[in-house]
């Protein structure tokens, strides 16, 4: 298949091409299509640029290695977001354990600790105002489950059905989690929106 034709294919057709003909170019097109949306999603969830880069790379590698586990009954976007979401959660858990260990070992060796300024990356802050920073901080404060739902619905703009499919839960649960997450967020950001 020619390069031009590959660009015209849908995501599902591209992954099919990669599965059947081991067409690496099809995979590269998928990477080009999804790298930025996934980066945005994972960054909003983790709040760390370097870790986000690792998670998104790992997601793409998983897609490459496990291309045959994708079934055409689901949308490709749902599948790749599910992988990224799971890896982001794993990363978050790993970070929590690491922080716990660092805190518990603090004082034993008199080590110095560099606390990363997670919002200070110039790439992130180039086009964003102070409001976005505050919203991002608030997002990181709410429960993981609600945060994930709000990012998928309000930032990535997925439908309730797609989110339900991604997370393997009912639409009712998705709606209820989104509402609770928004309420928590509103509580945290009331000083901004009351102005």
């Amino acid at each position: 298949m020619s390069e031009k034709n590959l660009y015209d294919l849908s995501d599902e057709e591209l992954i099919g091409e990669f599965q059947l003909n081991n067409e690496v170019r099809a995979f590269e097109i998928l990477v080009a299509r999804y790298k930025n949306p996934l980066f945005n999603y994972v960054f909003r969830f983790l709040g760390d640029y370097e870790q986000t880069s690792d998670v998104v790379q790992e997601t793409m590698i998983k897609v490459y290695r496990n291309k045959d586990s994708y079934k055409s009954i689901a949308k490709f976007s749902t599948w790749i977001y599910t992988i990224a979401g799971n890896l982001a959660k794993t990363e978050l858990q790993r970070r929590k354990r690491k922080n716990l260990f660092s805190i518990s070992s603090f004082g034993e060796d008199n080590e110095s600790f560099d606390i990363k300024d997670e919002e200070a990356t110039p790439d992130v802050l180039a086009d964003s105002g102070i409001k976005s920073e505050i919203i991002q901080e608030a997002l990181l404060k709410i429960s993981e489950v609600y945060r994930e739902m709000i990012i998928l619905r309000d930032i990535q703009e997925f439908s309730y059905e797609e989110i339900a499919e991604m997370k393997g839960i009912s639409i009712g649960t998705v709606k209820s989690r989104i509402n609770r997450g928004r309420a928590q967020l509103q509580q945290l950001l009331k000083h901004i929106f009351n102005e």
Partner: peptide, 25 residues
């Protein structure tokens, strides 16, 4: 307030992957 919140979330700046992302991958 609810509308303001969802609007603010929707219009948050998009975070993009670094330029060398694909090459590194």
């Amino acid at each position: 307030q609810y509308k303001k919140l969802t609007g603010a979330l929707k219009h948050m700046p998009k975070v993009n992957a670094p330029a060398n992302f694909e090459a590194d991958l």
